[in-house]
């Protein structure tokens, strides 16, 4: 029983990380139609930057702001310099280009920080464990599981109550209409890419004390994030939230309930959803 609860908490914690990453991925896809293969690498970069910055600028909390900003800037820069020449060309080129960015970032990280894995302490306030039903649970994981819904709330507010957010949402629904009603599309694209990679970087920072920081962390999470956005429905924000929680729980509970199948579960979920609901749970037909 305790293991079940612990696993549910693990699932929620992982799900919330996935949500933040997938949110960026789904915004970028929704608005720009680009499936950003490098998204996991921006996430990884966030984690490394946090690792590197936290000792210099005092503390994790400042890194939580600064690192995502740097990641977002790099994202915006790569959009302007690399992706922009490719709009209007076949989607596969954009996919391939972001794949190129992935290769560059993955190796750059290895060059700078070495090929090994690093670990990081949770910030002092959130260090330690709390007792739950007779066993203990890390405070930091709990913090992430609770932070997720807060971030979801902030994003909801941004997308439904602010002018920029509404504009992005409108553009994600219908790109042609967005340019028809006079939204400055190139600027919007850059802003969206900044914002999407910013979220990836933030997820990376949050993940740094939780999971091993290493060169493969991006490649592993990008597939999970793809699954989340496809299961939830490409371009759907609610879909990213629900999809992330489902995938988080499926992975965590899979460990306990069907360990042999655990690795295959996300893919089975993906295939089932796509075959039954071709546009994902919340996608528009």
């Amino acid at each position: 029983m305790e293991t079940l609860l612990i696993n549910i908490l693990n699932g929620l914690c992982y799900g919330m990380l996935l949500f933040i990453i997938s949110m960026g991925l789904t915004i970028i896809f929704g608005v720009m139609g680009v499936l950003n293969f490098a998204h996991g690498s921006f996430y990884m970069l966030g984690a490394y930057l946090c690792l590197w910055l936290a000792p210099h600028i005092p503390g994790f909390w400042l890194a939580l702001v600064v690192a995502p900003l740097l990641v977002g800037l790099l994202g915006a820069l790569s959009e302007v310099a690399l992706l922009r020449p490719l709009y209007g060309r076949d989607v596969s080129f954009q996919l391939l280009l972001t794949f190129g960015v992935l290769l560059i970032l993955d190796d750059a990280v290895k060059l700078i920080w070495g090929p090994g894995y690093h670990s990081m302490e949770a910030p002092r306030v959130l260090a330690g464990t709390v007792p739950i039903l007779g066993s203990t649970y890390p405070v930091y994981s709990l913090f992430i599981a609770l932070l997720g819904p807060i971030i979801a709330g902030v994003l909801w507010f941004f997308f439904h109550r602010t002018a920029w957010g509404k504009m992005i949402r409108a553009a994600a629904m219908d790109r042609e209409m967005a340019s028809a009603i006079g939204i400055n599309v190139p600027l919007l694209f850059t802003a969206v890419f900044f914002f999407g990679t910013f979220l990836a970087g933030m997820a990376g920072v949050l993940a740094a004390p939780l999971r091993a920081v290493g060169p493969a962390m991006g490649d592993n999470i990008i597939i999970a994030a793809f699954i989340v956005v496809v299961v939830g429905g490409l371009g759907s924000f609610l879909g990213a939230f629900v999809g992330a929680i489902i995938l988080g729980l499926v992975e965590a509970l899979g460990v306990q309930l069907v360990p042999q199948l655990q690795m295959a579960l996300p893919y089975i979920l993906l295939a089932l959803i796509l075959l039954v609901r071709p546009r994902g749970l919340f996608g528009r037909e």
């Binding site: 391939l96 960015v101 290769l103 560059i104």
Partner: peptide
């Protein structure tokens, strides 16, 4: 780190 060059050529 040949991947970085592959990426740099690919782009």
């Amino acid at each position: 780190s040949w991947m970085i060059f592959l990426g740099a050529i690919l782009v």
